[in-house]
Design a protein around this nucleic acid. Sequence first.
DNA 1: ATGGTTGAATGTCAA
Length: 260
Amino acid sequence: MTWNLATFNVNGIRARLGIVLDWLKEQSPQVVCLQETKAQDKDFPKEALEEAGYHVAFLGQKSYNGVAVLTKNPPEEILTGLDDGEDDPEARFLALRVDGLWVANAYLPQGREEGHPAFQYKLRYFERVLAWLEKNHQKDGRVILTGDLNVAPQEIDVYDPVRLEGESDFNPQVRAAFQRFLDWGLVDLFRKHHPDLKQYTFWDYRLPKSFQRNLGWRIDHILATPPLAKICRDCWVDTKPRGLAKPSDHTPLLASFDLT
DNA sequence: ATGGTTGAATGTCAA
């Protein structure tokens, strides 16, 4: 069967509920990973998403961050947080087992600028996610790591690599941390299928007409272990939601698999 | 030059 997975940083699930519900009806992926839900669990619009045909797993906090995973089939196991013993109140990681594979949804820290404590927290978060993979999974298993990873891996992934060099999402240390996910065995599905395509997933609100001028970044990713990469048919960006009224600053990324 | 807009919450902060 064709099995689709999507990732979408919604920048506020309550502000984006209409766009998300319309998009789910149109695309109907088997699994949808959301980031920056920005809602406490008591305020998360669970019922509306259930009525759209999904099981809903979520981990929220007040005002910031927050992740959720929607699945057509019921998840067999859910991990809310990395549970690695580090004291960390930020809601950035939710993994679940569904349809015979593990899906890890991450909202990695933006990191501010080099020298800010948030930058070290970002680098540490990359290490913690890698440690989670190393501890719990094998590269010959069926594992997906997806989400807003807040890193543009290569020059092709930002609108102006010279000007943006060193920015927290295009920083050598952060790009090296991303590379360690690939070194472990994960495959960047978008780049595998489109080696030379300049295609972004995020366009900053603060830059005038950034979407219309295509001044963006490819910072949302779907990474998969080799057995899944092998059965991945395509990975693509749906730019339509970014062009709607009151959009998120990100747009969805999807991948389709011939799952047996 | 170091801007700009948005969401959540209602201060202001993070992105």
